[in-house]
Computed example of a mutant assay.
Amino acid sequence: MKTLPLVSVLIPCYNVEKHIINAILSLNNQTYKNIEIICVDDGSTDNTNKIIKEIQLEYSFVTLISQQNKGILEARRTALNHAQGDFIVLLDADDKLESNAIYNSIQCLHEHKCNAALFEVYKVTENETHPFIIYTEHKIITGLEALKSSIGYWKISSLGVFKKSVYEKAFITFDNIKVESYNSDELLGRIALFESDKIILTDSKYYYTTNLSSNTLSFKMAWLEVFKTNKTIKEYLINNQIYAQIRSEFFNHYSIDFVRMQKHFRKNKKSLPKKDLIKYRNICLKSIRTLSFKEWLESIFNKNIPIKRKLKFLKSYLSLKLTLL
């Protein structure tokens, strides 16, 4: 490459005073130097804004934008609208990148003429770091293959270096869908994968921090919105005429979420008010309609869907259905 393209790193920030410095330091330590960092303070009530302003005194490539709290998706949109680079990276404020992650990815994009270079993902807890999404082959795949691999289990990540135009297109598509849920950012990521057309899987590392003792892991009724997102994913697949190719993966995707929600129901049954329990159970059971009766029959007899997955779902469904409140 004769000239190094500018890479914009987009960081939504909400009450991250304990983490934002480490995230920015991981970017300052990148071997790829032509970057800008756009932090969007999404209505923080702690010292996040103050800390970023102090960081700006030392690092001129950090931009701070403040807005009222709108959620992570809108914070990313704001950052994207202010990005000057031809390429973007999405980074959460409590996560970090390996020092050569951006350099390696840009090299891969240039060499193979791809629209996205995806990171491997490592989970970081208080005591250890372990692989979460690792690629056995660092190869080129299509947007359809990437989308298919993201449905059900996350076999690939939606984190990496993307052409800015890919996410601009993805936001337009997302806005036409018009869905609001707590995990709608995952839907946007999947749209971006499909819109990328040509993607390379790299060995660049993204370090995803998960705090098992965090309040963010406490029970939330908003988690049930995952079923709304699933219904929207199915509609998106149908509208793009690719649902038939991903039907098995979608059943896995839906059943994993259903089993997870049933476990939360069982775990919190004694602590939630009865009216919330009734609402919770009804939403879970109603979500069954995401698949038609014909699709349920096809899924039951589909040999590509593991028997263990079917039995887990059936057990969770019966447990929820027969629970006395």
Rank of each mutant, 00 (worst) to 15 (best):
F265R: 04
S214H: 08
Y243P: 01
K270E: 15
S184G: 02
A192H: 00
S165Y: 13
F162T: 05
H264C: 09
I200V: 15
S214G: 14
K267E: 14
L201D: 00
T202I: 15
K164P: 03
K169G: 03
T210N: 08
K228L: 14
H264T: 12
Y182M: 15
K205G: 07
I172E: 07
K178Y: 09
N252P: 06
Y182H: 10
V259M: 04
A146W: 04
T142A: 06
E180V: 15
S158P: 02
I172Y: 03
A192D: 01
A244W: 07
H264P: 05
N211I: 11
K155Y: 14
D197W: 05
Q241K: 14
L187Y: 00
S181V: 12
Y254G: 09
L212E: 14
N230T: 07
S214M: 09
S204R: 10
I200Q: 11
T232R: 03
K205N: 07
K270F: 12
R266Q: 15
I151T: 01
N215S: 10
K269E: 07
I233C: 05
I233H: 02
F265V: 06
M261W: 03
I151M: 03
E235K: 13
L212A: 09
M261D: 12
F194C: 00
I191G: 00
I246L: 11
